[in-house]
């Protein structure tokens, strides 16, 4: 696909939390998962990803742990906490609300 989108403001947190729902993952993995699952549409800037990860960690929604990748590379893995799961639910409902609201705005007559 030719079009690549930057991450919509405020949705990066949701994307990270969703990704981690599937299990612990490191920063590189998270950005790859987001890109792959969005069919290469969503590109995560590293300059946004790491501050976002640390911000989520600061808010106690995720926690980190050092582990080893399948290629035996030491990396920092992030995992959802209980609070993170609740936050994910909140973000999900906010996102649905947002999508519905956008859909309801009438289009110009074609």
């Amino acid at each position: 696909m030719a079009d690549k989108l930057g991450i919509l403001q405020g949705t990066l947190d949701l994307l990270i939390l969703r990704t981690l729902q599937r299990g612990p993952q490191h920063g590189h993995g998270i950005s790859q998962v987001i890109r792959a699952h969005s069919g290469d549409v969503l590109q995560v800037e590293h300059g946004s990803l790491y501050p976002a990860l640390h911000r989520l960690r600061r808010e106690d929604w995720i926690e980190s742990e050092w582990g080893v990748t399948e290629n035996s590379q030491r990396a920092r893995f992030y995992r959802l906490t209980a609070a993170g799961k609740r936050q994910l639910a909140r973000e999900e409902s906010r996102w649905k609300l947002f999508v519905k609201a956008v859909a309801r705005v009438p289009r110009a007559q074609e």
């Binding site: 490191h26 920063g27 590189h28 790491y50 600061r58 808010e59 590379q73 990396a75 920092r76």
Partner: peptide, 26 residues
């Protein structure tokens, strides 16, 4: 968490650096 981070900031700094390096290694 901020206070905690400030408390072990030397370690946190090292870990941050390693985290980013790991990204590049992967």
């Amino acid at each position: 968490q901020r206070i905690l981070w400030w408390w072990r900031r030397d370690r946190e700094e090292r870990e941050l650096e390693e985290e980013l390096r790991a990204h590049i290694m992967i």
